[in-house]
Nucleic acid binder design. Structure first.
Length: 259
DNA sequence: TTCCATGTTCCGCA
DNA sequence: TTGCGGAACATGGA
């Protein structure tokens, strides 16, 4: 489930297992997972290299391979698997390291992406991505400035990667649920205090989720996360959970306490 | 069989 | 310019 907490968890997994080992071979099992780079170039530039560090910005992951950076986006169903013998069923790219271990980038639906970039910073700038909400430079003031002068639904803005990078459908619903704001509320109708609460809640929820390694079962039971079902009882106020569509995405909210 | 899905992009319209 | 609805992409699972 790749939103920011999941990608952060993958980044830590990658760093824990796949750094400082020489890449003996690169197997691109399905070329459709590649972005701009050609298969031959992808293999040639990574074979023999060593990943030395990782970075994450929003839902984008980067690994330093020396002369180039591996760039991964996990789409809807991307995942990583470090293993010795048996590749995961939906492996699309496999890196084999000296010593016999492997790292697979797997993705059932192929909405993910693997590519090479010269510089993550340039990529982030060229793509126009907004700040990462866990970055130090992301302050309450900056957040308020990002929303300034906009008129769309709060959910739409929080989902837009060019405004804030990393939140997706589930976590935006979670943030608005916990701040008692209706997903369709126009952003210019938010009070200053509410904007500050949204800022603080984004950071708290992301940190809590990362601390639990973004595993569904370990997220607090009071999270909307566990109650995404029409007619479900809201654990916070006893109201009824409803479903609607905002920004083209299925949206769950409590009809009673989210206004 | 039908519907739905944690993401992104592109097009048309207001 | 901004915002939004809809469609498309590819595929498994309920």
């Amino acid at each position: 489930m790749p939103e920011l907490p999941e990608v952060e968890t993958y980044a830590r997994y990658f760093a824990r297992h796949a750094l400082n080992q020489r890449i003996a071979s690169v197997n691109v099992i399905d070329e459709r997972i590649l972005g701009e780079v050609r298969k031959e170039t992808f293999v040639r530039k990574l074979k023999g290299c060593t990943f030395t560090s990782v970075r994450r910005h929003g839902k984008h992951f980067f690994a330093d391979a020396g002369a180039t950076w591996l760039h991964l986006h996990f789409g809807m169903t991307g995942d990583l698997a470090y293993y010795r013998d048996t590749p995961p069923r939906f492996a699309k790219i496999v890196f084999a390291f000296d010593g016999g271990m492997h790292l697979a980038f797997e993705d059932v639906r192929l909405f993910g992406l693997a590519d090479l970039v010269d510089s993550p910073d340039d990529f982030i700038r060229e793509r126009g991505l907004g700040p990462d909400p866990l970055d130090r430079a992301f302050t309450p003031k900056r957040f308020a400035a990002l929303l300034e002068g906009r008129r769309g639904a709060i959910k739409s803005l929080l989902m837009t990667q060019e405004i804030i990078a990393g939140l997706g459908n589930l976590y935006v619903d979670e943030v608005l649920y916990q701040t008692a704001i209706h997903p369709r509320r126009p952003v210019h109708r938010l009070k200053d205090a509410e904007v500050q609460t949204v800022f603080a809640t984004i950071r708290r929820i992301l940190r809590e989720s990362i601390a639990r390694q973004a595993r569904d079962a370990e997220l607090p039971g009071a999270f909307l996360f566990h109650h995404r079902e029409v007619g479900e009882r809201c654990p916070r106020c006893g109201g009824t959970i409803r479903r609607t569509v905002v920004f083209g995405r299925t949206t769950y909210f409590c009809a009673k306490h989210q206004r």
